[in-house]
Nucleic acid binder design. Sequence first.
DNA 1: GCGAGAGTTGACGTTAACGTAAACGGCATA
DNA 2: TATGCCGTTTACGTTAACGTCAACTCTCGC
Lengths: 139, 139
Amino acid sequence: MHRTFTIGELAAEFGVTARTIRHYEELGLLRPQRRGQARIYSAADRTRLKLILRGRRLGFSLGESREIIAMYDPEHGNAQQLRRLLERIGEQRTLLEARLADLHAMLAELEEVEGGCRAALAQVRAPTARRAGGGSSSN
Amino acid sequence: MHRTFTIGELAAEFGVTARTIRHYEELGLLRPQRRGQARIYSAADRTRLKLILRGRRLGFSLGESREIIAMYDPEHGNAQQLRRLLERIGEQRTLLEARLADLHAMLAELEEVEGGCRAALAQVRAPTARRAGGGSSSN
DNA sequence: GCGAGAGTTGACGTTAACGTAAACGGCATA
DNA sequence: TATGCCGTTTACGTTAACGTCAACTCTCGC
């Protein structure tokens, strides 16, 4: 008996509103089953939602997320389509690696600032030996 | 003579419109000098713009970018402020590392799909020897 | 001295991604 | 049976991040 989820459960789990999840369905990113009127989400639906939200955190639009997810579930038969898919995977990876570089740069700078900050704090807390120059650090 | 830039130059360099750059100024993220009416951007302004756009690629809002940039330029004197800044740097780093994990997960999955895709393509192009069973990889 | 090209200030328009409110249905329980 | 608590649809509202005019102003090159 495969576990299923209600919209409220998923909303609580991922920290979004039910409206948000319904919105993704309106855009065709989710297709839960129905039990009467009520939506019933499968584990696969839950995974898709997780992917969408991960994409969102990384700044992808819902349209982009749709395309990414489309690559994930295999629905491609002939060689032509497979080659096209490989092409798009390559593009996507290039994009992701660029963002990876952005992120690393950001982290590096952040740690640099942190270092300077710690140094300044040490100066403030222990204004002992000092080089030539005034006391207040002008910039 | 420190190099300066016009709005058109920056727009061309970073692939955005002048309107976008002015918009960032409206929100207080940039404060170029003026030569009469015209904006004159310094190298520092250009760097700030680069940071904003990097943040944008990573899905940060302009408000978030403003805060991040605020951490970068040091304008904090006393120990209290420094500690507060260190705190915020820590939060920010936690956030960035979470996104880093997201990105790595995404890349890993993408490469997994790529592997399956190449395998399928090989099957299609050379449907020679085959193992027992269907051949389609179930998940 | 004038036209082209780049820049400027309003000010309204647009799109994505939801928020929010109204009006309703089903079911558990006090 | 009434009172919540979930869930549903429909539909308009909101916010962020610009796009898109219109109407000017400089400044250069001829």
